[in-house]
């Protein structure tokens, strides 16, 4: 469809629009359905984008970092840590390795034991943070070497809990997209029903128009334009309300966890603006098909 055709379609033939009597009920129904669907689509979209970001971030950050834990009698701890750091520095694929300071370890434990804990008196294992280079290091090789030279070391490359988290985030993203597809399908179905009931209610009008020589395209156009414009307006209102809802959600923060990250970032804010257009396209196709099949049954 060329630009001119679309413009003509939207501006429409004011005369053709008057041929179909105004129908308050189906009009409000279509507005409501497309508004509600657009509103829900905004949230499904926000969920998909946020869980996509989450999956990418977890997969990326956790894959690149690992933790080496060294548990040893307090006398040997410093020596073992030094050996471990040396080994790590020699290992290809390790970008950096750093022993956490006493203060950092205290901060990690504070949520469980409080700030006043006298860490010096406790046999706290030493943690070493490893950041992998690209390409990364050989996990099996490193584990083997550490087990012989640093008996108290345990390497945790986070795979164990990274994989289910990333899988969960990915399936959340997939669910979001499936929801958007279902919302579109449900909207198409409801607009088809509304259009069909409107066509059936106006069977007399259609018959008269056919008898005075109106072509199917003219008659269908009057209905299609009406439903498309209603869907566009309804969806636009739904998107505005939905986006306001997303905007009012608390910003992403460490305290709120991943839930507060539910929203749009950067160019993602432009995506919901496509919803009314898509809603209009869905309404256009649904009404066009309904009108075509109804008209075929008339003389």
């Amino acid at each position: 469809m060329s630009k001119g055709t679309i413009r003509n379609f939207l501006i429409g033939d004011a005369q053709a629009d008057r041929m179909v009597p105004p129908s308050g009920f189906t009009a409000r129904l279509t507005l409501f359905v497309s508004g509600a669907m657009a509103f829900l689509t905004v949230f499904a979209l926000a969920l998909s984008l946020a869980s996509g970001r989450l999956a990418d971030r977890w997969a990326d950050e956790l894959a690149r970092s690992a933790t080496l834990r060294i548990s040893a009698p307090s006398g040997q701890l410093a020596a073992q840590t030094k050996v471990a750091l040396t080994i790590l520095e020699q290992t290809p694929g390790v970008a950096s390795a750093r022993a956490l300071s006493v203060e950092e370890q205290a901060a990690l434990l504070a949520p469980w034991f409080g700030l006043d804990l006298p860490l010096d008196d406790l046999p706290i294992p030493q943690l070493i943070e490893i950041i992998a280079a690209d390409p990364g290091y050989d996990v099996r090789g490193l584990t083997l070497r550490l087990s012989t030279e640093v008996p108290g070391a345990v390497l945790d490359d986070h795979t164990r809990w990274r994989e289910p988290l990333v899988a969960a985030a990915n399936s959340l993203r997939r669910l979001g997209w499936i929801s958007i597809g279902l919302l579109g399908g449900a909207m198409a179905a409801m607009i088809t029903l509304a259009a069909q009931s409107s066509l059936a209610a106006n069977a007399q009008v259609i018959e008269v128009l056919r008898l005075v020589g109106a072509r199917d395209r003219y008659i269908a156009g009057a209905f299609v334009r009406r439903f498309t414009i209603r869907a566009l307006i309804g969806a636009a209102v739904g998107v505005v309300i939905g986006m306001a809802g997303v905007l009012l959600m608390p910003a992403a923060s460490d305290e709120g966890g991943f839930l507060t990250g539910l929203g749009f970032q950067g160019w993602g804010w432009l995506l919901p603006l496509l919803i009314p257009t898509l809603g209009g396209v869905v309404a256009f196709i649904a009404t066009w098909l309904a009108a075509r099949s109804t008209l075929r049954e008339l003389a």
Binding site: R210, V212, G213, A214, R215, D216, R217
Partner: peptide, 10 residues
């Protein structure tokens, strides 16, 4: 066809 029928009715 249906369009030709419409044109005829005019």
């Amino acid at each position: 066809d249906r369009d030709e029928m419409a044109m005829m009715r005019r």
